[in-house]
């Protein structure tokens, strides 16, 4: 019963090129791991694991242009 006992959050991870990568999960560490499910190792290299910012779903649109 995931959403009831382990709610997820949205995180913006900094990237080497100054852009941000949107990830999600119960914690920043799990969100980072979840990114690996769809990105290649080369793509993951540009994501900075320990630089992230938690955002709410309502704030999503104001960050759309920062994504890369």
């Amino acid at each position: 019963m995931s959403s009831f006992n382990t709610p997820h959050h949205l995180y913006l991870f900094a990237m080497q090129n100054g852009k941000k990568k949107l990830a999600y999960g119960p914690s920043p560490a799990e969100a980072y791991e979840n990114l690996k499910l769809r990105l290649t190792p080369a793509e993951m290299k540009s994501v900075i694991k320990d630089q992230y910012q938690q955002i709410t779903q309502r704030e999503l649109h104001q960050h759309a242009r920062e994504l890369g």
């Binding site: 959403s3 709610p7 997820h8 999600y24 999960g25 979840n34 499910l37």
Partner: peptide, 15 residues
Amino acid sequence: DRVLKILNKECTAED
């Protein structure tokens, strides 16, 4: 479960 995580479904295959 892998894909449910990619979709942030917050549900498991068991659910």
